[in-house]
Amino acid sequence: MAIIDFKFALEQVPAVLKGVPWTLTIAIIAMIVGLLFGLLIALVRIYKVPLLNQLSILYISFIRGTPLIVQLYVFFYGVPVLFDYLNPRFGWELNADNISPLIYALIAYSINTAAYQAEIFRGAINATSAGQMEAAYSVGMTTAQGLYRIILPQAFLIALPNLGNLFINLIKATSLAFAVKVMEILAISRIIANDGYRFLEMYLVASIIYWALCLACEIIFAKLEGKMSRFEGRADLKASAS
């Protein structure tokens, strides 16, 4: 048996590539949903909205303190339990079996990533200088206007490198989607590998596909940063001035 059967590996690439759309769908949609909720949670925490702030702290601590795979299982097995609890009380007929694996994955990954994004945005908003909001007030803006027009655009730029890392982590994390029965890159590779006893080949194929995806994301985020940071100018050098 050759070390690596390249021919076999190459032949399987198209089959494994079928997992890429699943990976990207989960990562992109979870990222966008997480962005909205993350931002809201960050604001809740910054403005210390009573009750919601404490709930947010608890939620973020739980998400960061438990493995994603456990969260996926809790969610996957928790939804039917929840439905069993709700159905008799409200006369509903919700059936967990009717929910597609993709929906499970989208919701679970969104819940997970929102917690991390909340922390990123909280840090980024706090990193904008206090004077910016004061200046917004001084020209007669409301808090909402100041946030939307002045603070958030600046915070988003500060957050961008971390958001990029988070997105790459999200892509890698989709390899756990098998827990909610989504057939993405790794799940497909695993089945082919088990069938043909070609483990090394299949997992190398999977690695290279993930690797390529991540490098592509890195490039895209670097471009995005370059484009958005036009107003930074010499700001780095003069950061101490404000």
């Binding site: 002045i150 700001a235 404000s242």
Partner: peptide, 9 residues
């Protein structure tokens, strides 16, 4: 303002 506080963006 003392530190100008111009909108950086």
């Amino acid at each position: 303002f003392q530190h100008y506080n111009l909108f950086k963006n």
